[in-house]
């Protein structure tokens, strides 16, 4: 373990400040809590919010899994996993079932999470309304008044012009029927997994200095219309490696003549299915 730094890098006073923000966030599901995000030794945009949340909740007995795009072996996931191995000396794993904390960028694991697990999301833009209204002072007011008609109108315009909703990821959700929330840029395919999930879901946005949360078993509903219900999108294929027809797939281009294969984005899920089949 790295000498000269506190356990999990952040000093204890900072961790306490972040835990307070987390507690507030859990108390008001889906509401964004401003917090004094610190400058981390990894760049903004690389997951500084998620890293600070993880650093504040991790203990020596935790087992950490880090995924980016669903995979444990993507470079940024490796880098963050190494960071915690270095500054906290904690056990790390690539198996979803073995992890007590899972830090993620852009995916929710395929395997259902349990009550004794925490899912930490890296969030680039915590404000779900920012494309409609960039002024933070104004969006805070809209949240306070639950004034979300603008977002419904945007989705309606998509349907009117394109016949379907044009948002395929970072698809807005209503949390506990009160706050409109960005699920972070996960594919809309993953949205239903958030609903009444037994695990605690924490969201950290470092650059924007916001934390929010979805406590266990909280209702999370993707915005839609009665006559245009929410649809989860996945590539209509089976995984080339494990044969799964229900997991989220990555399209991998194999040549320049239109050749492509589809494989699971969740590498642990894919691997364990192949091991079981073997």
């Amino acid at each position: 373990m790295e000498q000269g730094y506190n356990f999990a890098y952040l000093d204890e006073a900072t961790k306490r400040m972040i835990r307070r923000a987390i507690l507030k966030a859990v108390a008001i599901p889906g509401h964004q809590i401003p917090f004094g995000a610190r400058e981390m030794p990894l760049p903004y945009g690389w997951g500084t919010g998620g890293i600070q949340v993880t650093a504040s909740i991790i203990g020596p007995n935790d087992t950490l899994k880090v995924i980016d795009q669903g995979a444990d072996d993507t470079t940024n996931a490796i880098s963050i996993r190494r960071f915690f191995a270095r500054v906290a000396g904690v056990a790390t794993t690539e198996h979803t079932a073995e992890a007590s904390i899972i830090q993620t960028r852009h995916r929710i694991p395929e395997r259902a999470l349990r009550e004794d697990q925490i899912l930490v999301y890296q969030v680039p833009m915590p404000e779900p309304l920012f494309r409609l209204e960039p002024r933070v002072a104004e969006t805070r007011r809209m949240h306070a008044l639950a004034e979300y008609g603008l977002m419904q109108v945007r989705l309606y315009e998509d349907i009117a012009r394109l016949g379907r909703i044009g948002t395929a990821y970072n698809y807005p959700v209503m949390v506990n029927a009160r706050y409109l929330m960005s699920p972070s840029p996960i594919p809309a395919f993953d949205n239903p997994k958030m609903d009444r999930m037994p695990a605690l879901q924490l969201f950290g946005a470092g650059r924007e200095k916001r934390i929010y949360a979805v406590p266990p078993y909280t209702p999370v509903k993707s915005l839609d219309f009665d006559d245009h219900p929410f649809r989860a999108i996945r590539a209509p294929h089976a995984c080339t490696l494990c044969g799964s027809t229900s997991s989220y797939l990555d399209e991998v281009v194999t040549d320049d003549r239109g050749g492509r294969v589809f494989v699971c984005s969740d590498t642990d899920y894919c691997q364990s299915r192949r091991e079981k089949a073997a």
């Binding site: 993507t74 852009h106 990821y169 970072n170 840029p185 996960i186 395919f189 590539a235 797939l249």
Partner: peptide, 10 residues
């Protein structure tokens, strides 16, 4: 950084 999961849904 990789964004291929979101790109796939697009």
């Amino acid at each position: 950084l990789p964004h291929y999961v979101d790109f796939q849904s697009e």
